[in-house]
Amino acid sequence: MDRDKKERLEAKGWKVGTVSEFLELTPEETALVEIRLALSRTLNERRQRLMTQAELADKIHSSQPRIAKAENGDVSVSIELLIRAILATGATPQEIGQVIASTGSIIA
């Protein structure tokens, strides 16, 4: 949000902050959410280039609805399943590490 818009909203009595502030997330919780979303986006991008959700589901012995949930960042999907699915698209552990590192999450 640009500075002018923020100032206008605050002048009208609105409180402006981050999602993490609103939800009162710890730095660790914020980092975990960012990592999960980055993995979900990566899975979706890689899978779309290579195969259907059903094909990926067969490959990792899961279901198409579960893959859809994984790609949408559903919290019911484990990070383990996200990583298994990304690996099944041909990604290396190093590439997955780069995805995680790219979130820029710093836990103080």
Rank of each mutant, 00 (worst) to 15 (best):
Thr89Asn: 08
Val75Arg: 04
Asn72Pro: 03
Ile86His: 04
Lys59His: 06
Ala88His: 00
Thr92Pro: 11
Met51Lys: 08
Arg46Met: 15
Ala68Trp: 03
Gln94Gly: 13
Gly90Pro: 03
Gln64Asp: 03
Ile67Leu: 07
Leu82Tyr: 00
Leu43Phe: 03
Leu50Trp: 01
Ser40Asn: 10
Thr92Ser: 15
Val77Met: 10
Val33Tyr: 07
Gln48Arg: 11
Gly73Lys: 00
Lys69Asp: 15
Ala85Met: 00
Ala68Pro: 01
Glu80Ile: 00
Ile96Gly: 11
Glu45Cys: 02
Arg36Ile: 11
Ile79Phe: 07
Leu82Trp: 01
Ala91His: 06
Leu56Glu: 08
Gln98Ile: 01
Glu95Leu: 10
Ser78Val: 09
Gln64Leu: 00
Leu39Gln: 08
Ile83Lys: 11
Asp74Gly: 08
Glu34Arg: 03
Ile35Met: 14
Gly73Thr: 00
Ser40Val: 09
Ala70Tyr: 04
Leu37Asp: 07
Ser40Tyr: 07
Leu43Tyr: 05
Ser76Gly: 12
Glu71Val: 09
Lys59Asp: 14
Arg41Phe: 07
Arg36Leu: 11
Glu95Pro: 10
Asn44Leu: 13
Ser40Pro: 09
Ser62Leu: 04
Asn72Ile: 02
Lys59Glu: 14
Arg66Ala: 15
Glu80Thr: 02
Val99His: 10
Arg47Ser: 14
Glu80His: 04
Arg41Thr: 12
Ser62Glu: 10
His61Asn: 09
Gln64Arg: 04
Ala57Gln: 12
Ala70Leu: 06
Ser78Phe: 09
His61Arg: 06
Ile96Asp: 12
Ala54Thr: 03
Val99Thr: 15
Gln53Ala: 09
Pro93Phe: 11
Ser40Phe: 07
Arg84Ala: 07
Arg46Glu: 15
Leu50Thr: 04
Met51Ile: 02
Gln98His: 08
Gln53Pro: 08
Ala38Lys: 02
Ala57Met: 12
Asn44Cys: 10
Gln98Met: 11
Arg41His: 09
Ile83Arg: 09
Pro65Trp: 06
Leu43His: 07
Val33Pro: 00
Asp74Gln: 13
Ala85Pro: 05
Leu39Pro: 12
Gln48Glu: 15
Thr89Cys: 15
Ser76Leu: 04
Arg47His: 15
Ser62Lys: 09
Met51Arg: 03
Ala54Val: 06
Arg84Glu: 13
Arg46Phe: 14
Glu45Asp: 11
Arg84Lys: 12
Ala38Met: 02
Ser63Thr: 15
Leu39His: 10
Gln94Asp: 15
Leu81Tyr: 07
Ala85Leu: 06
Val99Phe: 14
Glu80Ser: 04
Met51Thr: 05
Leu50Gly: 11
Leu37Asn: 08
Ala91Tyr: 02
Glu34Gln: 07
Ala88Thr: 02
Ala85Gln: 04
Leu39Ile: 08
Ile79Asp: 15
Asp74Cys: 13
His61Ile: 01
Gln94Pro: 05
Val33Gly: 06
Gln48Lys: 13
Val75Gln: 06
Val75Cys: 00
Lys59Ser: 12
Glu34Met: 03
Glu71His: 09
Ser40His: 03
Ile67Trp: 04
Gln64Lys: 01
Leu50Ala: 06
Ala88Ser: 09
Val77Glu: 13
Leu50Lys: 05
Arg49Gln: 14
Arg46Ile: 03
Ile86Trp: 07
Val33Arg: 05
Ala88Cys: 05
Thr92Arg: 11
Glu80Trp: 02
Leu37Lys: 09
